[in-house]
């Protein structure tokens, strides 16, 4: 009975609501700690991508486009040495081509050489002209031929005009392309500058990140060591608590042997308020 009273005196009052509140506070604290841990895990799990080697980046300023400086040019475009342009002729002011010249006269049919025989023949043809005109319409033949020549001329002029217009368009496009190439070359130069800067920053960040990972690993190990020490100290505390209880029992026994009558009175006084225990071996 007296031993049970001592056990009850040693009991620490527990309150489940308070314990649960304490558990929830710990979980909240742990979550706050874990937030940093989660970031660390993310960093650790992040797959580091190989950094691009600036030497391996193929520049757009390749010899295919501009040729080696001082070497033979392989491309068809050049801003610095453009091809000399052919001066086109205005089709409306140009001289007439050979086939565009006016047709021969109908009278030429009767011409002959300037010699005596020629003159004789011209006299005979002059006398027989009405007869020839009676049987052959030579004018119609000549005018028909002249009309055909005119049509061919018109068609040739049309084709020539189209070709002229196309050449003008191509020259405009050529100018536009040259302007675009100028702009893109400037843009490429600017991007190369940016790339060099980015590569520099990436190298810098990579170094910082590596140092951070190393630092966090060290901190995690230290944290683990501290926890182990805490657990060890908690165990020691429990052990000391048990030792304290045993020593208290021993002191009480010594007191019992000294004043048995007084102890008996006290036991009798407290006996009424005790709760019977069906399993004293486990309590």
């Amino acid at each position: 009975m007296d031993q049970r009273r001592q056990q009850q005196q040693r009991r620490r009052p527990v309150n489940v609501a308070e314990i649960m509140a304490q558990i929830r506070r710990r979980i909240e604290q742990k979550k706050r700690d874990l937030k940093i841990g989660t970031e660390f895990d993310d960093l650790a799990a992040m797959k580091l991508k190989p950094l691009p080697d600036p030497q391996q980046v193929k520049s757009l300023k390749t010899p295919d486009l501009y040729g080696e400086p001082g070497g033979p040019r392989t491309g068809s475009f050049s801003m610095k040495n453009p091809e000399p342009r052919v001066q086109l002729v205005d089709p409306f002011t140009r001289p007439l081509l050979e086939f565009e010249k006016p047709n021969v006269s109908v009278e030429a049919l009767f011409y002959s050489s300037r010699g005596g025989a020629g003159r004789f023949l011209m006299i005979i043809r002059k006398f027989t002209r009405p007869l020839l005109k009676l049987f052959l319409n030579l004018d119609a033949y000549v005018y028909e031929q002249a009309h055909v020549n005119q049509v061919l001329r018109n068609q040739t002029i049309t084709v020539y005009e189209r070709l002229h217009q196309q050449i003008l368009d191509l020259r405009d496009r050529d100018d536009q392309m040259l302007r675009r190439i100028d702009y893109q070359s400037e843009w490429i130069e600017w991007m190369q500058t940016l790339r060099d800067q980015t590569a520099h920053y990436v190298k810098l960040l990579h170094g910082i990140q590596t140092n951070l990972v190393a630092e966090l690993t060290t901190l995690a190990i230290e944290n683990q060591n501290l926890r182990s020490r805490l657990a060890e100290m908690t165990d020691q505390l429990d052990l000391h608590g048990k030792r304290e209880a045993i020593m208290e029992e021993q002191v009480q026994r010594i007191e019992e042997t000294r004043t048995p009558l007084a102890q008996a009175d006290e036991t009798a006084a407290l006996a009424g308020n005790d709760i019977p225990d069906a399993h004293p071996d486990r309590s």
């Binding site: 489940v16 314990i19 649960m20 558990i23 929830r24 710990r26 979980i27 742990k30 979550k31």
Partner: peptide
């Protein structure tokens, strides 16, 4: 007795 509503509480308790 103690009680839990999620894994964190289960593990801690």
């Amino acid at each position: 007795g103690l009680f839990y509503e999620n894994y964190d509480e289960f593990a801690e308790a």
